[in-house]
Design a protein around this nucleic acid. Structure first.
Lengths: 97, 97
DNA sequence: ATGTTTGATAACTAATGTGTTATCATGATA
DNA sequence: TATCATGATAACACATTAGTTATCAAACAT
């Protein structure tokens, strides 16, 4: 590279405040962690996407899009997916770290 | 009324399993409580919808629609609104009451 | 009384999520 | 090898949310 900034990795990109603001970065990390827990919960239950689709009412392609972060779910969709997995969503105070 | 069911109040309606399934009822209650906390947090901060719109980036009509439950937010919108209020969202195990 | 702020809403466009159906490559299994 | 289940994806229609701009009635303050 011939300029001063490393943008070779996703991590570099995310940490470049000129491109991704701190708040935006937090939002992205929030979504990644949220989806991660969703996938984890499904797999821990030994459910396939199709299995979860059946019991949740959310279709398999939609679940795949969510898990692959191709779409940002609406809270009712997230609820429908999480509920049969034994989870729900809560508003909690921002614990600054 | 001439049939056996009371559907005079919203509460009666919600508790009629023939109309609203238990899961659906849970989802509705979940959303009501979620939105309730959102409004509470905003008012506790002494913010108007317009004020919150400015610092969150979500427009005032959108906030009004959410608070009035005319729309089901996407999780990124909810995050954007909650964050400047000092809150975030978390996935938590279903504590069966 | 006047002006201001508030939340709500209307009307429309743009953006995005979900349903639907089908397919594909991959990995596991018989 | 052949079969089956899996996650991913395509393409399209449909539904819904969010942005945009403007307005309104009510509450509040000057």
């Amino acid at each position: 590279m011939d300029d001063g900034k490393n943008i070779d990795t996703f991590s570099d990109y995310m940490n470049d405040e000129a491109r991704v603001s701190p708040v935006e970065r937090e939002r992205i990390n929030f979504e990644i962690s949220l989806i991660g827990k969703m996938v984890e919960a499904r797999e821990q239950k030994g459910l396939s996407q199709r299995g979860l689709a059946e019991i949740s009412g959310v279709k398999q392609p939609a679940i795949a899009r969510l898990e692959g972060m191709k779409a940002t779910p609406q809270i009712d969709t997230l609820f429908k997916v999480l509920h049969p997995l034994g989870y729900t969503i809560e508003i909690v105070p921002l614990s600054n770290k």
